[in-house]
Amino acid sequence: MPISAPEPAKRETLLVARGIVAGYGKLSVLEGVDIEVRAGEAVALLGPNGAGKSTLLSALSGIIAKSAGSVHFAGADVTRATPQQAVRAGLVHVLEGHHVFGPLSVHDNLLLAAFNAPPGERAARIEEAYEAFPEMAERRHLRASALSGGQQQMLVVAQGIVRRPRLLMLDEPSAGLSPVLVDRVLAVAAAMRARGVSILLVEQLVEKALGLADRVYVLARGRMALVSESAAGLAPAAIERAYLGGEALAGVQP
């Protein structure tokens, strides 16, 4: 990865997105969104339904096209990168709603996540994922469609590990999971951060997200309604207002 010398103030930023406009067909969901993630930090991206959180992740990972804005990742311009290029650079997007490949085995699902890894490295990466989720190792020959919803969610997070991210973007990993499993999945995310992987977490369970995150963004109706430098010091009332009202509150970029 060629890294051009960054400005001193931005030395640690891993992902910088500016003025992202994106949507589906004629409907633009994001209307100029800025977001930054620094190396090794966990960022929570919150917001009411339909605010555009998933759209933002998809725009960042190149799954949907952006009609305006720029994305820089690890110093390189990835605005026009394909999802494959994003994955190769370490920008990994775990979709919401356990998108596993039902007819394929658990192991094959992980092998596909290692598509862009050097062939010699694939087995080692999959082992890493099995270590994080031993129940996947036990079920490696089972068809993914035979897994429970919670196990499928583990599998897609495991697929995230296999892609060996520098930034792991998790979209609603708690959806449809029991509280115990939610903690498991978030613990894996925390462990990855401890190893230096940045996390960008979209989550409906606000308190869980705040427990993990260093910083918080709140997106409402296609715009950033709130940016907080500290997850701990955030008043619940402020989030609530940003959710229900949708008006911009604090929200100045650092």
Binding site: S61, I63, T82, P83, Q84, A86, V87, R88, H93, V94, L95, H99, V100, F101, G102, P103, L104, D108, L111, L112, A113, F115, N116, Q159, R163
Partner: peptide, 23 residues
């Protein structure tokens, strides 16, 4: 083969395959 599995993956869920970095 991995390419063959990638076919199946795209057929099953093209968006998820794309997100995994499958070209």
């Amino acid at each position: 083969t991995l390419a063959g599995r990638a076919f199946l993956a795209i057929s099953e869920d093209a968006r998820a395959a794309l997100a995994l970095g499958i070209p």
